[in-house]
Amino acid sequence: MRGIMPFAIVVAFALVAGFVIGRGTNSAPPSANASVVSSREDTTPPSARQAPPARHAAAMIATTPMPTLLADSMEASARQRAIAVEMAAKQRDEPIDAAWATATEKALSDLAAEVAVAAGDVEVLDYEAECRSATCRIGARFAEDGEAQDWSNFLLTSSGPQFANAELFIERNPDGSSRVLIFGSRR
């Protein structure tokens, strides 16, 4: 019994020390530990470290909860309009690949007419499509918002041969009509 006593004291001490040390090093969640390490190593000013704001809906949802995105409808509309303007400007700066642009505009025009029938013979107003070398911009107006939703969904579902991905904007006009704006990226 006497031989065991010193060993038991050492073990008890090790138990307590191990518990205290373990608590000290692991009490913070992994993400908090990671941020501490990162702030020690990264000397870039916070403003320069910030990622640019997301422009595509899927990326916006991935980083911002939906209630936050739609908390203020006026702000959401303004943000959406600003993103659309930015995408339009970027598309205007692209060089033109005439062969691809002409063929794709024709294919989209045929598809637009086809899906208008599929959506219940909806009337597509002010249709326009302009393709350059990497992106096509498609615009159209509809008397009813539901027509805009159906037509644009049918068009984009069937646009796999033309587009790798696309961004859709629908905005309600003061007269009740709806404006569709699509930016499709070349496949």
Partner: peptide, 23 residues
């Protein structure tokens, strides 16, 4: 068969969605 993945949001007058079409 044409299908597209959609990820987006809609509320009132605001609709924005990202489409990824495939066939």
């Amino acid at each position: 068969v044409n299908c597209t993945l959609i990820s987006g949001f809609q509320s009132g007058f605001v609709t924005q969605a990202t489409y990824t079409p495939k066939a």
